[in-house]
């Protein structure tokens, strides 16, 4: 119990004094996570919309597969990306293994299914009368899409938040693709894992509090936007 209290005390000390290493890790974490969320948003939302509004054979099966991939283990994504990015792999020429780019690549793949799946769910939840009204008003294809995405915007924002939360909190892909190299690919989760194994609970706790605080701020911001 005492350990925990000291830990929290140290944590706030590190945060308030803007400890260079803590700051460095936090900024890198945000850079990597935001990049993968941005990339994934660009891919997953149009993908989800295309799947929702197009009729094709195997649509239901595809949606089931996407939903199954919500539970995609991070270490499996790590393994796959490792094989893709390793020097002898198909994407070896990119030289992304053990780089932040590689981590962004891995996290993007990790969160595309959940973001696409939740986008599909968000669009499917729109009242069919809204769809009929949009068609009846003579929307072009682009206007049709835009009006639907706008109507589902809160649910789609939630999809982005879920993607963000999964990306910032995962450790498997980050450690396997990034390699936890100090000053280069070390992020909050991999740092916590390392510091804990080294017995530096205070630092681990500080990093954990920062991680949670980031998640809290993002959620508060989204709540604010939704209530506006």
């Amino acid at each position: 119990m005492n350990d925990l209290l000291t830990g929290i005390e140290t944590a706030f000390h590190l945060i308030l004094t803007a400890d260079p290493e803590v700051l460095n890790i936090t900024i890198r974490t945000l850079q990597i996570t935001f990049s993968s969320v941005l990339l994934s948003t660009i891919i997953a939302i149009p993908l989800g919309a295309a799947i929702t509004f197009r009729e094709f054979h195997g649509k239901k099966a595809l949606i089931s597969v996407i939903q199954t991939l919500y539970a995609l283990p991070t270490v499996i994504v790590g393994l796959l990306c490792y094989m893709l990015l390793s020097r002898s792999g198909p994407l070896g020429d990119l030289k992304w293994l053990f780089t932040p780019n590689g981590m962004i690549f891995g996290q993007t793949i990790l969160i595309i299914p959940i973001m696409a799946g939740l986008t599909i769910a968000a669009l499917q939840a729109i009242d069919p009368i809204i769809t009929d009204t949009i068609r009846s008003l003579g929307a072009s294809r682009f206007q049709f899409l835009k009006s639907h995405l706008r109507e589902a915007r809160f649910a789609i924002m939630a999809a982005v938040i879920v993607g963000f939360s999964r990306a910032i909190s995962e450790v498997g892909t980050a450690i396997m693709i990034g390699g936890n190299i100090k000053g280069h690919t070390r992020v909050l989760t991999t740092a916590i894992s390392l510091q804990t194994s080294m017995g530096n609970f205070n630092l681990s706790l500080a990093l954990g509090i920062i991680l949670l605080a980031i998640a809290l701020i993002i959620n508060l911001f989204m709540g604010f936007v939704q209530n506006r």
Binding site: I130, L137, F154
Partner: peptide, 11 residues
Amino acid sequence: GMVFQNPIAFR
């Protein structure tokens, strides 16, 4: 143009 049975509005 068409108006439907259930009153709905965009959010």
